[in-house]
Amino acid sequence: MKIAQTLFRGGLVAYTSLFFAFIYIPLVVIAVYSFNSNPVNMMTWTGFTTEWYAQVLGFKTTVSENALYIESTGQLLQAVWNSLIIATSTTLIATVFGTAIAIGLYRFDFLGQRFYRVIMFMPMLMPDIVLGIALLIFFVNSGIHLGLTTIIIGQCTFLISYVFIVVSARLAGMDRTLENASADLGADEWTTFRRVVLPQLLPGIVGGALLAFIISMDDLVITYFIAGVDVTTLPMFIFAMLRRGIKPEINAIAVMMLTFSFVVASLGLYLRSRQK
């Protein structure tokens, strides 16, 4: 019995190690092979190079023309720039709206409150392709030109939900006695909100905003449908590259994106864990 138990435990630990290997080994592989100098067969190691990174970043390289497919780094930078504009705007709007709903639903009792709460989960659970085409039909029918504006509006519809959920969770864990104390000590409602509620709520708001920013930067499906012809975002750019054929530069872009989001996410999660 004892031996069986030990074996079982050992098996479970081995399984869990495999589980983490499954998640992380592919990411390590791509990071390693992004330094591979072989321009044709990306998975056959022929030597170390940083040329692909240099190429993507727009430095002069010795890479031959036919191994490449970005004509200029300008396209890539434009896509990154578009993504940043969109993510910044949507984060601002979604954070204000999401926080307003969370406070409204938490502080007030009104008819249809539960219904409202359920509705707020809908945009998040809606399959993205459904929301994407619904928005496309809507924008085309209402004659709004597809572009940055439509992307920002479209992303906000579901990002509000994410902010709402994060801020609501924070509100639910808040200490209401502090508010009562503030009111008892003579502060008016606005002062109490500004000096007592808001500081407590801030980590939730920041967390929600970070989440919204990351999801906005990464959204492909909804953006893909409502972007129109003029605007390309970073995920759309990579998606288009993948559909055209795979060349080593994409590896370098992928690894840079991975590194960036790992750093941001680690920082965010670390800050959150310190708060507890």
Binding site: P26, I30, M43, D218, P235, L242, I246, A254, M257
Partner: peptide, 16 residues
Amino acid sequence: LPFFTSLIVRLFVWVL
């Protein structure tokens, strides 16, 4: 952590 990284990049890895 992977949830916060680009979906398309994570899929591209499997193409390779």
